[in-house]
């Protein structure tokens, strides 16, 4: 069976319809996304390269995407700066982070 070429970018869709196209490698830092997009499991998300997160709204998902890139950038760095987390979003981000396992 020919190995299916994985797309470089994937799309994350928020509950209110915002779409974020981010690097697959960054998106897979979140273990929930990684599992959903894993071709071995053959979920619908893998075929469409798109994952809908029905419990995360656009504002929070934007922050999550920011974090995923931040994590990717500093994964091997020595001195990691703190990302900016707005206090009004921290509880929603906590729930989102728990759901996404990142």
């Amino acid at each position: 069976m020919a190995e299916k070429q994985l797309s470089e970018y994937v799309t994350l869709v928020s509950s209110d319809g915002f779409e974020f196209r981010i690097l697959r490698s960054a998106a897979c830092i979140a273990k929930t996304v990684q599992k959903a997009l894993d071709p071995a499991y053959g979920f619908k998300e893998d075929q469409e390269n798109k994952m809908t997160l029905s419990n995360i709204n656009g504002v929070v998902l934007e922050k999550v995407c920011e974090y995923l890139y931040y994590n990717q950038k500093y994964a091997k760095a020595k001195d990691v700066p703190d990302p900016d987390i707005p206090p009004e979003l921290c509880l929603e981000l906590l729930i989102a982070a728990d759901y996404l396992q990142c």
Partner: peptide, 24 residues
Amino acid sequence: HSKAPSLFALSLAKSMNTYSIEDI
């Protein structure tokens, strides 16, 4: 392991700085 802290830990610490445990 990634040297970057997890989003869970980051937002948890931020929440603790913003709200009390009872409020959360």
